[in-house]
Each structure stands twice: as C-alpha cells, then as structure tokens.
Amino acid sequence: MAMKELYARLKALYPLGELTDQRRDLAFVTLPAAHLRDTILHLRDKEGFTHLVLLTAVDWLEEGQFQLTYLLNNRQRACDLGLRVMISRDAATMEGIHDIWPTAATYQRELREMFGIDFPGSPRIEEEFILEGWNDIPPYRRDFDTLKYAQEAYAERPGRVTHDPETHMRLQMYPGQHPAGK
C-alpha cells in the first residue's frame, strides 16, 4: 500500500513506467535515463531512500538493451524500490551517480569492465578492476560464451565427462532403453 502511495507521488513529478509490486516491501519501476538523477535525488532527500543497496545490469540480448537496476532502501519504513533504466546495448553509456553515493563508483567500475557500460567521469573507471589483461568482449554479456573461451584458453585434463541430466536420469531409471527413443 505504502508503495502505491509513493508511486503516485513520484508519478506526479516524473514520467515513470508501470510499478511492479514484487513484495509488500519491494517494488520495481522503470524510468527514462534522463530522469534518473532527479528521481534518485528526490528519493534520497525527500523520501528517505538513503541507502544504495546495489547497482547492477541485466543483459536483455534479444531486445538489444541493458537494464540497469538501482536498488534503494528506506530503512525507516523498511522498504526497497528498484529503479530500472533501459539503455541501448550498442554504445552503452550512462550518467554516473558516484557523486550522490561515493560507493557507486565501485559498482560502475565493475559494470564498465563486466558489461562494457561506460560511465564517463566516474573515478578510476579506466583502470582494470577484476580482470587482468582481458582481451575478449566483456564477460557478463550474454553473447560471451564462457565454456568456449575456457576450452580455447586453458589446457584441460582429459577424462572429464559431462552427463546431460535428462538423458542420464533416463538411462538410470530405464536401463536398456535408447536415450534418444524417448
């Protein structure tokens, strides 16, 4: 209920998308990238969402978009609001929020390295964060195939077998039956 009221108040100020009520104390809302900063400042200063829980990205490869999720927490009212910002996958850049929460700089460095989303002006954004000497597309993107990369890059010890769970279980339960025979 409280979430609905908050949404109504916010909606009057900013062009927000639909509200997704996940739980009594957790909701997600989509908003355009241009209004993110104002909304966050409003939420932080007027609505008491003072704690940045996380900042992360989801790769919607099929739709050609990255979803950035800014999860804010209001401790007094014990509720969380997730702000979803959709940005285009190619030439992905986003305005940083490291001046609102200094700790966001770390998240932005990770996103830059793992997804290739640029946050111009964020501190130490150019430096390598986790990987060292990475020479492929950013690894958390959906089109990066980690198994293929691992097989090409690293020597493997022969003898590892992988069972497809479904075929394996069928053979276990109905021995003798050919796995392809359904």
Partner: peptide, 19 residues
Amino acid sequence: TINGGMYWDSYNTIKKLDE
C-alpha cells in the same frame, strides 16, 4: 587444481595446474 572442479567452464580460472 586437478581439472578445474566446480569452475570447469569458468573463463577466469586455470584447469590444470601442472601445465
């Protein structure tokens, strides 16, 4: 260290130490 273990398909860990 022997064969990659849990991380057999990870892009960032080596799979065979004696190499």
